[in-house]
Design a protein around this nucleic acid. Structure first.
Lengths: 344, 344
DNA sequence: CTGAAAGCGCTTACAG
DNA sequence: CTGAAAGCGCTTACAG
C-alpha cells in the first residue's frame, strides 16, 4: 500500500510564460519559436527550445484554440446505430486510417455520434465552431442536409451523398464500377462462363455500381449475366443471397460477391451444400480483411485500400481547412489479390 | 453549377455576449443560466433560454475549457499497431460503447494513437492537461508506465495492467475465470466428457484466467481436462490450434474456445475435416458478435457485454474526473447464449 | 439574484 | 528580430 496522493492536488503544468521566463524572452517570442515563425534569431530559437525541453512544456490547446479561433479537431460522424457501424470491419478500417493520419498532423479525431431524434442539435454543434471539419462515412448520415453544412464547414464524404452534388462536395472513394469489373474480369480470365453476383444494397450507389461493373464485364466478354441477388453487407445476408442463387434453376461456375463479409456467409452455404470452391464455383469478392483471409479456401478479392481511404479523407479535410480548393472526386486505387478461391 | 460561396467568409457564430444582450442581462448571468446555477430567477432563466434558442447559441468549447481549466475530452488510447487493433471487433465494440456513453455526457472521445518510438511524447501530451482522462484497452499500452500517469490523470483500464496494482488503478472487465467456467459448465451439462480448449494468449491474464475457468470446471465435474492449445484471438490462430488439437491423439467431444474470432477459424477446420457440430464435437466460445452468429451452426457463446464494458469505462473515467473515489475492480456481467453448436 | 472585473493560456497585429 | 498590449469566449469569486 502506498500513501494516497489525492488526485485533487492539481499537478504542476508549465505555461508559455514560464518557458519564456526561463529562456529570458517574452512570451510573444516564445510563441513565435513554437509556431515556427521565421523572424526569430537562431540563438533565440535554441534558447527557447532548451527551456521547452527542460520543463517539458506542451502548449495548452484551449488557450491556443481560443486565440487561433480553431479547434484542431475533426469529427468522425457516427450514425446513431453505432453497433451496426462498428461491427463492420470496413468502417473500423476507415477510422483506423483516419486516426493514423491524424496522429501525423496537429489535428485530433473525435468520434461524434449524431442524434437521430434531434439532428439539428448535431448540426448546430458542428456549425458553431466546435470542430474544424468533419468526415462522413455512413449512408444514412450522408443525408442531403449535410449539403448545406458543407457550405460553411469543410466536410469530406466517404460515400456519395445521395442527393445534390454541388461543387462544394468532396468525396473520397474507390471507383466502384471498377471494383465490380476487376473482380469479375478475373473470373472471366479464369475461363468461367456462368458468373453470378451477390450485390450490396441496391439503394446505395456503391451497391449499384459494383453490380454494373459485374454486368458490363460479363457482357463485354460475350457471356450471359448469371444470377444476381441483393445482399446487405452482412454474412447472414450473403448466406441468404447464396441460398437464393442455389435454389434458382440457373447453374453458375463463378460468383462475384460485393463484400467479404457477405462472401464469408455465402462460402459457408456453398460448403454446407457440398459445392467445391473453386472446382465447382470460383469466388471473388471485395475487401481485403479478416473475412477474405480466414475462410477456407482463402478468397480472391479486390483490395479496396480502405485504411488508405480513411487517411485520404483526413488529409483532404485538413487541406480544406487550410483553404485549399479540392476537386469533388478523389479516387483511392484498387488491386486484385489472387487467392485459392479462384485457382485454376 | 452554383456560384461559389468561398468558405473563407467565416460564418456568423453567436457568442455568450450576444445572448446576454438579447436577453437584457449580463454575460455573467447568461453563463449562470447555461451552467444551471440555482441562483437565478425563473424569469431570467426563461429570457436567456429564449435568446439562446432564437440565435442558436452553442457554447464555444475553447473559451469554456480555458476558463474551467478542463478539456471535456477523454482519450481512447490506441496502440500504434492500429490495424490489428481495429481489426478486432472486440475493440471496436468497446469503442462503440464508450462513444455512445460519451455522447450522453459533455465529454467527447478522442482517438489517440501512442507513438511507440517516443512514448514519452504521448505521456507528456496526456499529462499536460490536453485531456481530462484516458481509457486504455490494449495489452501493449497497459505497460507499467501508465501506473505513474494514473497518479496524476484519471485513467481507466479495460485489461489488468501487467505490473503494479496500486490503489489508484481502476479496471473495468469481466470476470475471466467465470467466462471460462460458464462456457465449460454448459458443455459439462450437455453431457460432454472430453472437453478441450483453445486459449487466448497465455501471456495475458485474461488468457490465463479463461483457461483456469475451463480447467477448474472440468475438474470440479470429475472429468479429465482435454487438450489445451494456445491461440492468438485471430481466426487463423484458432484454425491452427484446432489443427493441433485434432492431430493430437486425444479424442474430444467438446471444446471451449476463448474467443469467437478463434472459434470461427476452428469451426472451419472441424467442418473441413468432416467433424460434425455438435454431433461429434460441441463448441462453446466467448464474444457475442458476428463471428459467433454467422458461422453455421451458430455458436453458443458467453456474451461479454462488450459495448457495456466500453460504456462503463467511460462512465468510470467521468466519475474519477469529477473527483469520485472508485474501487480498483469494476465487473461487467456475463451471460450464456445457447445456440445450435451445443444443441443436444 | 445580478453585474463588473479579473483571469484562463495562448496568438498576433502593432510599434519599435 | 523582439516586446507590450489587446483579444479570443468563457467562468467565477467578489461586491452589492
Amino acid at each position: 500500500m502506498t500513501i494516497e496522493t489525492p488526485r485533487g492536488t492539481t499537478p504542476w503544468i508549465p505555461t508559455l510564460e514560464e518557458v519564456a521566463a526561463l529562456a529570458g524572452v517574452s512570451s510573444s517570442t516564445a510563441s513565435r519559436v513554437i509556431n515556427g515563425s521565421p523572424r526569430v534569431t537562431e540563438q533565440t530559437v535554441a534558447r527557447v527550445n532548451e527551456a521547452i525541453a527542460k520543463i517539458g512544456y506542451v502548449p495548452n490547446r484551449a488557450g491556443r484554440n481560443l486565440a487561433r479561433r480553431r479547434t484542431q479537431t475533426v469529427a468522425m460522424m457516427i450514425p446513431e446505430r453505432t453497433a451496426d457501424f462498428f461491427a463492420d470491419p470496413y468502417f473500423a478500417e476507415v477510422i483506423q486510417g483516419a486516426a493514423m493520419h491524424a496522429s501525423s498532423t496537429e489535428y485530433s479525431l473525435t468520434l461524434l455520434i449524431e442524434s437521430e431524434q434531434d439532428p439539428h442539435k448535431t448540426h448546430q454543434f458542428l456549425r458553431r465552431g466546435n470542430v474544424d471539419g468533419a468526415l462522413i462515412l455512413s449512408h444514412h448520415s450522408a443525408s442531403s442536409s449535410y449539403g448545406e453544412l458543407a457550405r460553411t464547414l469543410p466536410i469530406v464524404f466517404g460515400v456519395h451523398p445521395p442527393g445534390a452534388v454541388g461543387d462544394q462536395i468532396h468525396v473520397v472513394d474507390v471507383d466502384n464500377v471498377a471494383v465490380g469489373a476487376l473482380g469479375t474480369r478475373h473470373l472471366v480470365e479464369r475461363g468461367r462462363q456462368h458468373i453470378a453476383t451477390i450485390t450490396g444494397p441496391l439503394d446505395t450507389s456503391a451497391g449499384r455500381e459494383r453490380m454494373q461493373g459485374w454486368r458490363d464485364t460479363v457482357l463485354a466478354a460475350g457471356l450471359e449475366p448469371g444470377g444476381c441477388e441483393e445482399g446487405d453487407y452482412t454474412p447472414t445476408g450473403g448466406a441468404q443471397a447464396m441460398g437464393r442463387l442455389l435454389d434458382a434453376e440457373a447453374p453458375f461456375d463463378a460468383v462475384f460477391i460485393a463484400s467479404a463479409q457477405m462472401a464469408s456467409g455465402a462460402v459457408a452455404v456453398l460448403k454446407d451444400r457440398g459445392v467445391r470452391i473453386p472446382a465447382d464455383v470460383a469466388v471473388a469478392t471485395a475487401d481485403n480483411n479478416v473475412f477474405s483471409t480466414s475462410s477456407s479456401p482463402q478468397l480472391t478479392t479486390v483490395d479496396l485500400h480502405t485504411a488508405e481511404k480513411g487517411a485520404t479523407m483526413m488529409a483532404a479535410v485538413v487541406r480544406l481547412i487550410d483553404g485549399a480548393q479540392l476537386g469533388t472526386e478523389m479516387l483511392v486505387p484498387i488491386d486484385l489479390i489472387e487467392r485459392a478461391s479462384t485457382a485454376l
